[in-house]
Amino acid sequence: MDVLTDDLRLYLAEEGADAERLDLLTGQVRDQIGLLEVDDVRRITSAEAPPTGARAIEVGAVGALLVMLGNSATSLKEVVSVVRGWLGRGDGTRRTVRLELGGDVLEISEASEAEQQRLIDLFVNKHGGET
């Protein structure tokens, strides 16, 4: 089992969502991740939002979470599974997620299921997880 030393940052966005909707969605994802074997999960303040150069995610329209993964790469795989589920529950509304870990960034929006899986597998495997 590999040891992770970095925390995972998640940025969630939904096309057309207002601040209240994003707050609700972020809370739901936070609650789901909180059930996993992670050390902690908390909201990121606006001061910790992604850089303004973030491609698809607008800084003002982001629900952001910091996930302390702990010592197990397995928790990364579980968190990514929650995020994939969230992306799939958009009911036709465009959703975007940005994951940042160890200086690497993965941003997924309108990728096919197969492409999402391929990108996520690469990201998780690079950080010591197995898919």
Results as ranks from 00 to 15, higher is better:
E20F: 09
R21H: 12
R21C: 10
L22T: 06
D23K: 14
L24M: 13
L24N: 07
L25H: 10
L25I: 07
L25Q: 06
T26K: 09
T26M: 02
T26R: 08
T26W: 02
G27Y: 05
Q28K: 12
V29N: 05
V29D: 00
Q32S: 14
G34Y: 00
L35D: 12
L35F: 04
L35V: 05
L36A: 05
V38S: 01
D39R: 06
D39S: 04
V41E: 00
R42L: 11
R43M: 14
R43P: 08
R43W: 10
I44Q: 10
I44S: 11
I44P: 03
T45L: 12
T45S: 15
T45R: 13
A47T: 09
A49T: 07
P50T: 06
P50R: 08
P50C: 07
P50H: 07
T52H: 10
T52E: 10
T52L: 11
G53T: 12
A54D: 02
R55T: 15
R55E: 14
R55P: 13
R55M: 15
I57V: 10
I57T: 07
I57G: 05
A61F: 05
A64N: 03
A64Y: 04
L65C: 08
V67E: 03
V67I: 06
L69K: 03
N71K: 14
N71Y: 05
N71H: 09
A73D: 06
A73S: 15
A73F: 06
S75M: 04
S75Q: 05
L76W: 02
V83I: 12
R84E: 15
G85H: 11
W86G: 12
W86Y: 15
L87M: 11
L87W: 10
L87F: 13
R89P: 10
R89K: 15
G92Y: 08
G92W: 05
G92N: 07
T93Y: 03
R94A: 15
R94I: 15
R94Q: 15
R94W: 07
R95L: 09
T96S: 13
V97T: 10
V97Q: 04
R98V: 02
L99Q: 02
L99S: 04
E100C: 03
E100A: 07
L101R: 00
G102P: 01
G103Q: 00
D104T: 00
L106C: 03
E107M: 03
E107A: 08
A111S: 14
A111L: 13
A111Y: 08
S112V: 08
E113I: 09
E115F: 10
Q116I: 04
Q117G: 13
R118M: 06
R118K: 12
L119C: 06
I120Y: 01
I120H: 02
